[in-house]
Amino acid sequence: MPRIYTSQFSGVAVTAQQDLLSILAGAACGVVLYEFGLSQSTEVGDAQEEGLSIVFKEGATAAGSVGSAPAMVPLDLGDAAATAVVRANDTTIAGTGTIVTHYSWNWNVRVPFQYIWIPELRPVLRVGRRAVIGLLTTPADSITMSGYLTFGEIG
């Protein structure tokens, strides 16, 4: 049974393309991804509606920068601290290495976007591998976003 963790950012003004969330598996544990969610609170109503391109990528060998390293919280507080590293809102994206794109979506910002992988399809990050939830579109206006990532560690 993996140890399950969440990591999140809240109320961040997003004005540029960025790695909304990224996770790097540690040197000793594989990572299994379960779910992520994105939402925003400031662009509401028909006139503010827009579609933003979101991708799930894997394989970057260097971290992005400028953003933050949010806390990783075990869902069971008795579990050990996570060994992975989560980053959020890196406007300098993780762009080095052989990067592959697994999924591509367009998010209508009027409603939250949630993606839950079914058990068979949960992405597995082997040790030292990095995955990114990336925003490929510059928002028309600043949007105040929140987001979260739920993952497990094995080993």
Binding site: D46, A47, E49, E50, G51, L52, S53, Y103, W105, N106, W107, N108, I118, E120, L121, T137
Partner: peptide, 13 residues
């Protein structure tokens, strides 16, 4: 198992 489609340019009523 799954597919998804979406679009980003035709927005609003």
């Amino acid at each position: 198992y799954e597919f998804g489609i979406s679009q980003s340019t035709e927005i609003g009523d």
